[in-house]
Amino acid sequence: MRQYFIDYMIVSGLIIGITAFMGVIAASIGERIFGGSKRKEHVNESKHIQSGWNLVGGKNKTIS
């Protein structure tokens, strides 16, 4: 009976993991195929908003 529960946990973990991984893959493929020229729109907008911000915390901060 214990082996049944172990198998059940392994299979349920694989199903949940594969489902989550497939979602990430589908989103990235869809973005590449259907994204067109707006593929980096959110990244560019975030960089634009953060362009004047001060770096805080830590020492030897470098801008990359």
Score class of each variant (00 low, 15 high):
Ser46Arg: 01
Gly57Cys: 10
Leu14Phe: 15
Gly35Lys: 02
Asp7Asn: 15
Leu55Ala: 12
Arg39Thr: 01
Val11Tyr: 07
Ser37Asp: 08
Ile10Cys: 08
Leu14His: 11
Asp7Trp: 10
Ile63Val: 13
Gln50Leu: 13
Ser46Gly: 08
Ile18Lys: 09
Arg39Asn: 00
Gln50Asn: 09
Arg32Leu: 15
Met1Glu: 05
Ile29Asn: 04
Asp7Lys: 15
Val24Arg: 13
Val24Gly: 10
Glu31Gly: 06
Val56His: 08
Asp7Arg: 15
His48Val: 06
Gly13Ala: 01
Ile6Gly: 07
Ser64Ala: 10
Glu41Met: 01
Ile10Met: 05
Met9Cys: 01
Gly52Met: 13
Ala27Thr: 12
Ile6Lys: 03
Ser28Met: 09
Trp53Gly: 12
Lys38Gly: 07
Ser51Leu: 10
Met22Phe: 12
Thr19Met: 14
Glu31Tyr: 07
Asn54Trp: 03
His48Phe: 06
Ile25Gly: 04
Asn44Ile: 00
Lys40His: 12
Gly58Ala: 05
Gly13Cys: 09
Glu31Trp: 04
Leu55His: 14
Ala27Pro: 03
Met9Phe: 06
His48Leu: 00
Trp53Thr: 14
Ser37Met: 11
Glu31Ser: 05
Ala20Asp: 10
Gly36Asn: 07
Gly17Thr: 07
Glu41Val: 00
Ile33Tyr: 02
Gln3Pro: 03
Ser37Pro: 08
Lys59Phe: 12
Gly58Arg: 01
Ile16Gln: 14
Asn54Leu: 11
Lys47Val: 00
Ile33Val: 08
Asn44Met: 05
Ser64Asp: 14
Ile18Gln: 08
Ile63Gly: 06
Gly35Trp: 06
Val43Pro: 00
Met9Pro: 02
Lys61Asp: 04
Gln50Asp: 12
Phe21Glu: 10
Gly57Lys: 05
Gly30Leu: 03
Ile29Phe: 06
Val11Gln: 04
Val43Ala: 02
Ala20Glu: 12
Leu55Thr: 09
Val43Ile: 14
Ala26Leu: 13
Tyr8Asn: 09
Ala26Gln: 11
His48Cys: 03
Ile63Thr: 12
Ile63Trp: 03
Ile18Thr: 07
Gly58Leu: 07
Gln3Val: 08
Ile33Glu: 07
Gly58Gln: 03
Tyr4Val: 14
Gly52His: 09
Met22Gln: 11
Ile49Trp: 01
Phe21Met: 11
Lys47Thr: 05
Trp53Pro: 01
Ser37Tyr: 08
Val56Pro: 00
His42Tyr: 02
Asn44Pro: 01
Ala26Ile: 13
Arg39Pro: 00
Asn54Ile: 02
Thr62Phe: 14
Asn54Glu: 06
Gly57Phe: 10
Gly17Asp: 05
Gly23Phe: 02
Leu55Ile: 09
His42Arg: 14
